[in-house]
Design a binder for these strands. Structure first.
Lengths: 211, 211
DNA sequence: CGCAAGGTTGCAGGGTCTGCAACATTGCAG
DNA sequence: CTGCAATGTTGCAGACCCTGCAACCTTGCG
């Protein structure tokens, strides 16, 4: 291990890298929000972040990645939390609790995420990219779930189902949270969608009392 | 109901178009399976289908689209089935039944789909493209669900959750079906994953046997 | 036959992304 | 302070993706 990948303990180099990466990502989101994602060129983003076009690609594999701003750190941290959750927790509950960490990250960067989501909403072609970012994470999560439940990713569909489903509801929660005019805390929204899952997605009971 | 507009109102022109489209799509999948998706150029695909590169783009908006081969007809048919399902069915059940139509289509083209899935598995960047194809479908499905349950896509997360989750499990089911050595019918796999949903994704009971 | 509709093609051109080699900066001794 | 090695940055060439445009050819139909 060359670098202590974890946050604070970093040299000036590492700090500058993080700084450049942030600048690029922010420029990408801002420009995309201003002009629409498909009218923003990598040149423009690099220009705004004051680095060369070539350098852009040292940080992000594609333009879309800069806009969706996938941070692999978060996924790893999340999985770590699932692994270390008490073994007697049901998988869904373990995942929901592990999501608290991710939620904190997202709420820390609230403005940025809201911008991101509006951009994505206006350029649906980006949505897949956002998912693609989490595709690897999802696969890893499936293996973690398999471990926890003594199942196999190859022979049982259960782990993959749980991974895919929780990924899907997390996305919905963030979207609703970001696009809602009067937002509840993200935490609340996430709890709501997980509750829907655990009761088997029955239709919301709106008996004769309201509406 | 197989290929409605095909035989009837098709002039030679229409037949040739369909033919070219199929040739391109098949060539794309075959070449991708042979050499890996990212090593296949549009030129090669067009060459194999014996049309010019420019013509390729008259049929598919992108290389990925040719490989994933999204057919908008299927999504529309599926939604139609959900809409016309008996109103007293729970949403999940209505969707599961409506999927029978899609399942038939996929099993009709079994070989092609298996190839597709192996290609996608080896080139994860394609997965998002496959989902992107269904992103619009998913949104439409959310509205259908909202109608059935008297909820609203804007204020309630329920419809979006159901749409996202069923999309996710459908994808898992097809993947498992296509990559399994000894495949059960797709229908069975779909039933299994939907059962997992309706019991709230509890872990399969491992210690003692049940079900 | 002749015309109109529509499919096919080549070409120009802008955008994305990668490999490579040179240059600049940083961190670390000595 | 001074080299040295590691690492980040940049320009450049080049392959590929994709689009608009105009010309060409085929088909359908009177």
């Amino acid at each position: 291990m060359v670098t202590p990948a974890d946050g604070a303990a970093s040299s000036r180099r590492d700090r500058k890298k993080r700084q450049t990466r942030d600048a690029l990502s922010r420029a990408a989101v801002r420009l995309a929000a201003e002009h629409g994602a498909e009218h923003v060129t990598v040149d423009a983003i690099s220009e705004a972040a004051d680095v060369s076009t070539r350098t852009f690609f040292n940080y992000f594999a594609s333009k879309d990645e800069a806009i969706t701003g996938h941070d692999p750190t978060i996924g790893a941290e999340f999985r770590e939390r699932v692994v270390t959750a008490p073994a007697d927790l049901p998988p869904l509950e373990a995942i929901r609790r592990a999501l608290d960490g991710v939620i904190a990250h997202v709420e820390d960067d609230r403005e940025q995420w809201i911008l991101r989501m509006t951009v994505i909403e206006r350029s649906p072609s980006l949505l897949p990219r956002l998912l693609s970012a989490s595709a690897a994470d999802e696969c890893a999560l499936a293996h973690v779930i398999a471990d926890r439940t003594g199942t196999s990713v190859e022979t049982d569909s259960y782990p993959s189902v749980v991974a895919a489903v929780t990924g899907a509801v997390a996305r919905v929660a963030v979207t609703h949270w970001a696009t809602s005019d009067r937002p509840k805390p993200l935490h609340t929204t996430v709890d709501e969608v997980f509750d829907m899952l655990s009761v088997g997605l029955v239709a919301p009971t709106r008996p004769r009392r309201r509406r």
